[in-house]
Amino acid sequence: MKEPFDRVVSVHGATVLRVCRAVVGPVDADDAWSETFLAALRAYPDLPADANVEAWLVTIAHRKAIDVVRRASRHALPVAEVPDRPVEVAGRDLDLWSAVAALPTKQRTVLAYHHLGGLPYDDVAALVGGTAAAARRAAADGVATLRRTYPAIDQEER
């Protein structure tokens, strides 16, 4: 039996948003999130009952992120990296997202799908191309760069 879609949103909504923020940046992330869940809602009745829902969502998010980036580059709008509201947490987050945004695309997306979306490297490789080993290396390189450009990460360890 399939659970109500609202449950899917409450369980996986935060994860998908973090993936979107890492892949397309904080400004376009909301758009990518909305497109992802709207597409997921449309397809949900046909999803096999035993499917890995989070991996399914991350796969949709990957496609929607590509769409959002394409649309943004077509319109060639300047991207204002300013939060809607001056919230302290958002300010701190923004530093991180800037550090993430500075990563090469491959490292950024691999890091998002594996570390945030929980996809195994085999699945990540299927999405972004290349081998699982290459995906693993790209993620490791990305994390190493983040440690350098955003040292606060290590201070925040629990």
Partner: peptide
């Protein structure tokens, strides 16, 4: 470093707003 520390959590207000728009 765990994955949760790598990226900050997202705030509940944003998710509530996105849910409403969805």
């Amino acid at each position: 470093m765990t994955d949760d520390d790598l990226f900050p959590s997202v705030d509940a207000d944003t998710l509530t707003r996105l849910h409403g728009e969805l």
